[in-house]
Design a protein around this nucleic acid. Structure first.
Length: 113
DNA sequence: TGTGGCGCGTAAT
DNA sequence: ATTACGCGCCACA
């Protein structure tokens, strides 16, 4: 399909999975990491930060495993964070007191053995 | 409940 | 090739 993988193999996988995540749904860094075979959920956030790729890759739909909003645009706080919350809110994802109110909005990810 | 430390991967030097 | 950093997670106090 694409013969120009300028991105890391891991990044490609992350974007692929993220792209399959529908609107109004959220995923945890850990789940994503496991899905892509990454041993460190931290790397996921790193890739999302290095490659925001704009709306094509909804990195704002990725939250912490603690159901906390986490960071956005390379920041754990600030306007960017608020934008993330606003975006999720527009999709139906509500954060209650800084925590995901509806865990049912989590995307059903499954680890590939 | 809060703090610290850890390990993985990328990107930069 | 090596060093430093990062949007997190886990363990322990």
């Amino acid at each position: 399909m694409d013969t120009s993988p300028s991105l890391s193999l891991l990044a490609e996988r992350v974007y692929g999975l993220l792209r399959q995540i529908p609107q109004g749904r959220v995923v945890t860094y850990k789940a994503l990491a496991e899905a892509v075979g990454c041993r460190s959920p931290r790397v996921i956030g790193q890739i999302l930060k290095r490659n925001p790729m704009a709306p094509l890759v909804p990195c704002h739909r990725v939250i912490r495993s603690d159901l906390t909003p986490g960071g956005y645009r390379g920041g754990v706080d600030g306007t960017a964070l608020e934008s993330k919350l606003a975006l999720l809110l527009a999709e139906g994802v509500v954060f209650r007191r800084g925590v995901l109110a509806d865990t049912g909005r989590l995307y059903p990810f499954m680890a590939p053995r």
